[in-house]
């Protein structure tokens, strides 16, 4: 047997298969068309195997490899690793895709190290070049550099940033095959004693990565109480409130609201940055937004270079006036 096709790891804890996994199935189809072979979806499931498999086939899988587990909702990292190592050894895919979610980024390197494969992190693209090689595109140096990377051994393993590829249109007339597997305990010794998920600890309050419009506030905010004004503006615009790191450091906002290298990478239609200077670690988290509006008292603030509209002025005054204007506009509309 030789290496062929693409395998996708379907992230499936908590609420079920993640959106990012469907994005990967779409990309996998595109790549398989160029390099040949099947698209395999690898998933760990407790029940309703057929139902899940049908969905994965509709989104692009030719073959669904199911490992039966009892703890789908509270996944054991070591058991997922053993399942993937087993699947990769049997399927011999040329390319293995993982979602670059924290879970995917925790799992993929263990799998890679176990089989001695190369792994490329948090990719923004994967393509097949003129010589038929798979090329992985990723940011490095806190987003300052974009690198194109080839893997010279098999398989090529990649984690892909959620949201960069579209979710494909499902086609429920597609046909695929389901292969059920059981991991016997000697394939994954001591996994259960080594790693135990005790339970859900905290839900995320917000998922700013999914927002279409973001109002993001930075150190220009003078006190915790002042955040209310910007919250109101966000609400009036139907936007999600977000922030830069100093507000999290100060304890004024939760980490889930932070945009940037050590926070969340966002790609909204409109990003409104108020009182944010535009440090590289912040830019790394928002530079792919479709349209950027920023407000800053300092005309030389670096964020200007990443903005479509740059307002030189006070963020408080701006927010109050915009709020008034929007309310007037809505009032007129009623």
């Amino acid at each position: 047997m030789s290496w062929s096709g693409v395998a996708v790891y379907v992230e499936n804890y908590g609420r079920g298969p993640s959106k990012a996994s469907f994005e990967l199935l779409g990309k996998a189809r595109e790549i398989a068309a160029k390099i040949g072979g099947f698209v395999h979806a690898i998933v760990l499931l407790d029940k309703e195997v057929e139902k899940c498999a049908d969905v994965l086939v509709a989104y692009g899988a030719d073959e669904v490899i199911v490992y039966r587990v009892e703890d789908r909702e509270l996944p054991n990292l070591l058991i997922h690793k053993c399942s993937l190592v087993d699947a990769i050894k049997q399927l011999m895919p040329k390319l293995v895709l993982f979602p670059a979610t924290p879970w995917g980024r925790s799992l993929a390197p263990r799998v890679a190290a176990s089989i001695g494969a190369g792994l490329t992190a948090d990719c923004l693209d994967v393509y097949v070049d003129d010589s038929g090689d798979i090329v992985q595109v990723r940011p490095a140096f806190t987003g300052n550099i974009i690198a194109h990377i080839k893997t010279i051994t098999h398989p090529v393993m990649t984690t892909v940033r959620p949201g960069v590829f579209p979710v494909p249109k499902p086609d429920f007339s597609r046909k695929g095959r389901v292969i059920e597997k059981v991991l016997n305990s000697n394939m994954c010794p001591s996994a259960k004693e080594g790693y135990r998920v005790l339970g859900l600890s905290r839900e995320k309050k917000v998922r700013i990565q999914e927002a279409r419009v973001i109002v993001s506030i930075g150190r220009g905010v003078k006190s915790r109480e002042d955040i209310k004004l910007f919250e109101e503006l966000a609400k009036e615009l139907g936007a999600q409130l977000a922030c830069s790191k100093p507000l999290v450091d100060a304890g004024w906002m939760e980490k889930d609201f932070q945009v940037g290298f050590s926070g969340n990478i966002v790609k909204p239609k409109v990003y409104i940055a108020l009182g944010i200077s535009g440090a590289p670690q912040h830019i790394a988290g928002m530079k792919d937004s479709d349209f950027v509006i920023s407000v800053n008292t300092d005309p030389s603030a670096p964020i200007a270079r990443y903005s479509n509209i740059f307002v030189v002025g006070d963020m408080y005054e701006f927010a109050k006036k915009l709020l008034d204007a929007v309310r007037t506009l809505k009032g007129v509309g009623n």
Binding site: G118, G143, I145, T151, I152, F310
Partner: peptide, 24 residues
Amino acid sequence: SPTRVVKSYYALESGREAKVVRGI
């Protein structure tokens, strides 16, 4: 090392030309 960088470039060139406006 199984991975090789084949090409790299500076990413923070935004290509955006901000329209600069003031105050009101």
